[in-house]
Design a protein around this nucleic acid. Sequence first.
DNA 1: GCATATAGTTCAGCCCGCTTAACTACCAAG
DNA 2: CTTGGTAGTTAAGCGGGCTGAACTATATGC
Lengths: 149, 149
Amino acid sequence: MTRPSPVSQSLRAWMDVFMHRSMRNWHNFAKSAGLSMPQFSILMQLHHKGACGVSEIGERFDITNAAASQLVDKLVQSGYVERGEDPSDRRAKVLKLTSSGQALIERGGQERHRWMDDLVKSLSADEQKQVSEALDILTDAAQRMEEKT
Amino acid sequence: MTRPSPVSQSLRAWMDVFMHRSMRNWHNFAKSAGLSMPQFSILMQLHHKGACGVSEIGERFDITNAAASQLVDKLVQSGYVERGEDPSDRRAKVLKLTSSGQALIERGGQERHRWMDDLVKSLSADEQKQVSEALDILTDAAQRMEEKT
DNA sequence: GCATATAGTTCAGCCCGCTTAACTACCAAG
DNA sequence: CTTGGTAGTTAAGCGGGCTGAACTATATGC
């Protein structure tokens, strides 16, 4: 058992402080929009990764294509997702957020992150710069790791 | 509507990526343990806040006591939670993690930590130092804010 | 052209989470 | 002791997520 590095410890501390609160915000927002968690997760997924097919949804969430198809269908009927044809493969569908879906995700982001603005305001200008740069480094690294999986 | 500062934007970007990843880890781990998300959330709650009664579970997750009672009962039958008597109030129950439940939560924590450690390893030494300092600043600021509320 | 594989849909059926309502057991105040 | 409130359980019923299986339609390799 190797000891975790200082960075890992900082990361864990950060996570422990904020995980619970953010999770609850996220869940409550989905619920208030009349969406189940799986449904909202799909919207998040489309927002993050852009348009994709039904099978990719299934793979991401480790469910069958049947389940993915059914979930997507509900989102289509709710007006949050557009299910278009793929011109290069007439079997495939192209799923993308509608403007309504986009707006929902953005509104969720605003609500979930409002407390972050207050947090940022409590920092000095120098601290803000430092934090900003460091978080960009982390975000880039995390996205690179995500792509590799 | 004021424009978010660069720091806020960095913070939001990071939290988006981080939450997305964390949710998936969490969900997969719960699933692999044969637990639903609500069930696993209750275990997390008990781990974080310690023993409590059934009604407190209901309040935390904004569900009726009936629902809380049913969820808890499943966890008791799975051997993760002990439902004991409260000597000071014979109506109330005292819910706490069994050693098996404790072990499960800790194992879940290790899996999350592994991802973070991998993330840290993908950074240079300079970047690690920078990130570590920044996260400590954030965590301290957050805790100061927590105290004021 | 034909066989096989792939993308997606539909359906029956199951389990789960949740609510309402009815119930037990207990506490606490008059 | 009675009355009213509180902690928790149970049961019926609803809707949601998920699966396996059967199906359509399209793509691809021989």
